[in-house]
Design a protein around this nucleic acid. Sequence first.
DNA 1: CTCTTATTTCGTTATTTAGCTAAATATAAA
DNA 2: TTTATATTTAGCTAAATAACGAAATAAGAG
Lengths: 104, 104
Amino acid sequence: MSEIFKALADPTRRRVLQLLRERPMTAGELAERFPFSKATMSAHFAVLREADLVASDKRGTTITYSLKLSVLEDGLLAFAETFGIGAGRAPAAATTVTPREEKG
Amino acid sequence: MSEIFKALADPTRRRVLQLLRERPMTAGELAERFPFSKATMSAHFAVLREADLVASDKRGTTITYSLKLSVLEDGLLAFAETFGIGAGRAPAAATTVTPREEKG
DNA sequence: CTCTTATTTCGTTATTTAGCTAAATATAAA
DNA sequence: TTTATATTTAGCTAAATAACGAAATAAGAG
């Protein structure tokens, strides 16, 4: 959960995800759309991979990234539901919050 | 947008929001439910305030925090809709992403 | 005014993050 | 093998973050 939100907290990474929404793209294709070095972009890709928000497919020398929309969707939905937001049946507010640490 | 996700990226802050979902609570009430100093918790509250996810009401010497659920809801929904997630009518993927910086 | 309580702010420290350049790796082509 | 291309990794710096204890602030009680 934290990893997803951390990934989404950076505008560059959000834009990468938006680009991948249109179609899968290689690391280079993505990188040239941003004013940062390829190394910096590679680090951003790593964060997105950590959060499991993208899949990477190595083909020869190029790596193609694609959006794992279902992971993003499930993550956001799961969080939203704990607040009774969105589709969920708005679980009663009485449920005491479990003050447990992440399953990390 | 970044500020909301940054606020949500920390598990302590997510738990604070969950607690506030039940009822408004003072800074002290909230703080005593966590294993951190009041100063540290105060900093977390500041981040939540920055993101406009909580309202603070000063009454005498105590400050009562309450969840601004609509801000959380609108924020998540707005983001989700750009991905065609959830309620939204799934806008066509053809829309080119605007590579603009945050309005911050 | 003084004391106590509630909360924040200040000053410090350790860790993480985002950016860079340069170097390493891996694959394909010649 | 050498060269070129695509990408990541390594090493660095500056800035941000999360934590602490101590000091400051604000307000009510005596």
